[in-house]
Design a protein around this nucleic acid. Structure first.
Lengths: 213, 213
DNA sequence: TCAGGCCTTCGACTTTGGTCTGATTGTGGC
DNA sequence: GCCACAATCAGACCAAAGTCGAAGGCCTGA
């Protein structure tokens, strides 16, 4: 990493964001710290600063749609280590986060010391490599074959956007979007847009919860 | 309130806790601030300091069991104003928080300025009445208007079935299914099958809702 | 430098989705 | 009986979704 470490903190809760920023600021006094509160801001920040040493990414952010956002950022910036920060404790979420290319996973209920320690470990190159070994044909694996633009299209499909809207938001023709959709459906192994949305959304974070037998 | 305001911050996330504490410390330089990370610690702190001016209470804490913890604290210390802090944005949760005796409700995604402002308002005796009086037009309410057969159609839509498959499974014609779909979309207030599936599936996912009266 | 592969883009075409009009049948309540 | 509504379907029609083939740009290895 560079002599001056650079961080990007992405969380829509100002409290959490500030806490992380100040903690990292103290631990790395010379660090350059940027913040973002939406997926769009994250993308913009990474475009400006592609050499970012670590991205601390909250999963419950506007536009993230859970882990699909991780995959999207991963495909756009394969070099930037992503440290997923989430309140979710479910092992399934953690595992999927690694499958989608996260370098580390931090539970929000961890202490600031632990968090700083994890960040330092990532900076030192200790990429907690995805213990990928099983060749199980999971949906996540199929999804990993998507190109950056295809991820963008899928992210908008998941929000319920129609091809025309997607085309407008991405600044391309509707025919192009349709072509992407066709490829996406084939790569995901489904037969319709609705099925793709269902599968992809099941990757998103189930918002904490429930108890009560 | 006393000349020196006293706060109790209850949250099991160190990040959030520290952020709140420092924000309140800056806004009220002379304030006395205590923290707690479990319901038991909150109870102990309130027993020691029954004159606390404001309790900032996270809902997702060990032992809280959602809003029941609010009611418990309320009955033990009726004088202490409770400010519920939660990531939950659901109107139902907010409404119930007030029903259980909360003085204010703060969304975790609010800015620190807003939070400090809310705390100050509570200190001044402004009990925030639920601004939620409008007949909240929730998706669940709209969904309740569906007829039995429309539910069956929707259930199959949610599984990713196409109109033709649905018609076959229900033993009716495709035209009939289309007619049902049209009504379903209108009743749910969405514009496409995909959006209907997204909304309906998010409904099935358990939300932080203590029930069981 | 050129061939091959991949991403992205798009137009033309086919299929599915969704609306509208209008109609028939059955059910339950007032 | 009458009314309201659920359920069924047909046919026409427009919009959205999805497929196919093809072109240009970019990178990589021979």
């Amino acid at each position: 990493m560079a002599a001056v470490p650079s961080f990007l903190i992405a969380d829509d809760h100002p409290m959490v964001r500030d806490a992380l920023a100040s903690a990292l600021g103290q631990a790395f006094p010379s660090a350059q710290i940027a913040v973002a509160s939406t997926l769009a801001q994250v993308q913009a920040a990474l475009d400006r600063e592609p050499e970012t040493d670590a991205l601390l990414l909250d999963l419950d952010m506007p536009g993230m749609d859970g882990l699909t956002g991780v995959a999207l950022l991963r495909s756009e910036h394969p070099i930037v280590p992503i440290i997923v920060v989430s309140a979710a404790r479910e092992p399934a979420v953690v595992r999927r986060a690694y499958e989608f290319g996260a370098s580390a996973y931090i539970d929000k209920s961890a202490s600031l010391e632990e968090i700083v320690g994890t960040v330092a470990a990532v900076l030192d190159g200790e990429i907690f490599a995805p213990p990928e070994s099983e060749p199980t044909d999971t949906f996540s694996q199929r999804a990993a074959q998507l190109t950056p633009q295809q991820w963008r299209v899928l992210a908008l499909m998941i929000q319920g956007d129609q091809n025309k809207q997607i085309a407008h938001k991405l600044g391309v023709g509707e025919a192009t979007v349709k072509a992407h959709v066709t490829v996406i459906l084939r790569k995901l192994g489904v037969r319709s847009r609705t099925q793709a949305v269902i599968e992809a959304r099941s990757l998103a974070i189930p918002v904490a919860e429930p108890v009560r037998p």
